[in-house]
């Protein structure tokens, strides 16, 4: 299986890249690691007419701490994330994406811009309430919160001719975290994934909590009912178990070969409980 024909440029600057994308029109696509796009192109499920390769762009890689945020260049690979234990749930989740060869190519920017609800990092961005900076061809920049980034299945706020230029993820120091990914095989896409973040108050109760799902709707979604049930209350096994029962509320999981919608809802409840327990350190 091989891609259909396309034109290719590898501009040396961000401006050039944006211009090339704008000139290429709707069927021009940016190429980062290519591990979302190339598999689709090989199956001819995507047939862009122009690929704008971002590999020569400077300054879009790397991980820095800034004002309580992790500032991550969009071309930073999953492999770079997984080896930074200080990134917490981001590192832990990155390590679970596909397999190491894929992680050696795939990038955080590509994953977020692609917006596959079965990818793992979008749920992490949703749970951490991270945000991305998007540049358009006119040189304009805007910051988009996770909640607004993911709009529908494979549809994000990153429009044609636009690029993510920065990813910001709150460091959430002092929060407990866990990402529970349920797969049949290690290298598979998540059947369901749950990202849980928990902040304990000095008295041990739940000061704050965030839960987000992979593959439970057409976008990554927050489990607000679970969060509400837990926030401000005790953070023991019973409370967690009770809160996790709300996990399926507001979800609309797509059924597939391996899991019916009902089964996915059930998994969401089980995995939410497990993720919360791990995040709460209980």
């Amino acid at each position: 299986m091989i891609p259909a024909h396309f034109d290719y440029v590898a501009p040396a600057s961000l401006d050039e890249a944006l211009r090339a994308l704008a000139d290429g029109g709707e069927d021009a696509k940016p190429l980062a690691g290519g591990h979302s796009l190339l598999p689709l192109m090989k199956m001819r499920l995507a047939v862009p007419t122009l690929l704008v390769d971002l590999r020569r762009l400077e300054g879009l890689r790397g991980i820095e701490r800034e004002n309580g945020d992790w500032r991550i260049g969009p071309l930073t690979r999953h492999a770079d994330l997984q080896r930074r234990a200080d990134l917490g749930v981001v590192a832990q989740t990155a390590a679970l994406i596909a397999d190491q060869q894929v992680r050696n190519r795939g990038t955080i920017g590509g994953s977020l811009a692609h917006g596959d609800p079965a990818s793992d990092l979008p749920a992490v961005l949703a749970a951490t309430e991270g945000r991305v900076t998007i540049r358009d061809a006119g040189g304009g920049s805007r910051t988009v919160a996770a909640a607004d980034l993911f709009q529908d299945y494979l549809t994000t706020a990153v429009g044609p001719g636009e690029l993510i230029t920065e990813v910001r993820i709150p460091a959430l120091d002092g929060w407990g975290h866990a990402y529970e990914k349920f797969t049949r095989r290690a290298e598979d896409w998540a059947m369901v994934g749950v990202c849980a973040l928990v902040k304990r108050a000095p008295d041990g109760s739940c000061e704050d909590v965030r839960v987000a799902f992979t593959n439970m709707a057409s976008t990554p979604i927050r489990a607000t009912a679970v969060e509400q049930a837990l926030r401000g209350g005790p953070l023991d096994d019973a409370a967690i178990a009770a809160a996790a029962e709300h996990a399926d509320e507001g979800t609309d999981p797509p059924a597939d070969l391996n899991a019916s919608a009902d089964y996915k809802r059930h998994l969401a409840r089980v995995l939410t409980r497990r993720a919360l327990q791990r995040a709460a350190g209980s």
Binding site: R184, R185, A186, E187, D188, W189, L257
Partner: peptide, 16 residues
Amino acid sequence: LVTGTFVDYALPTAAE
């Protein structure tokens, strides 16, 4: 055919 690739036809890997 629903299981048309190695994504859906799940040969076990070393990790399983």
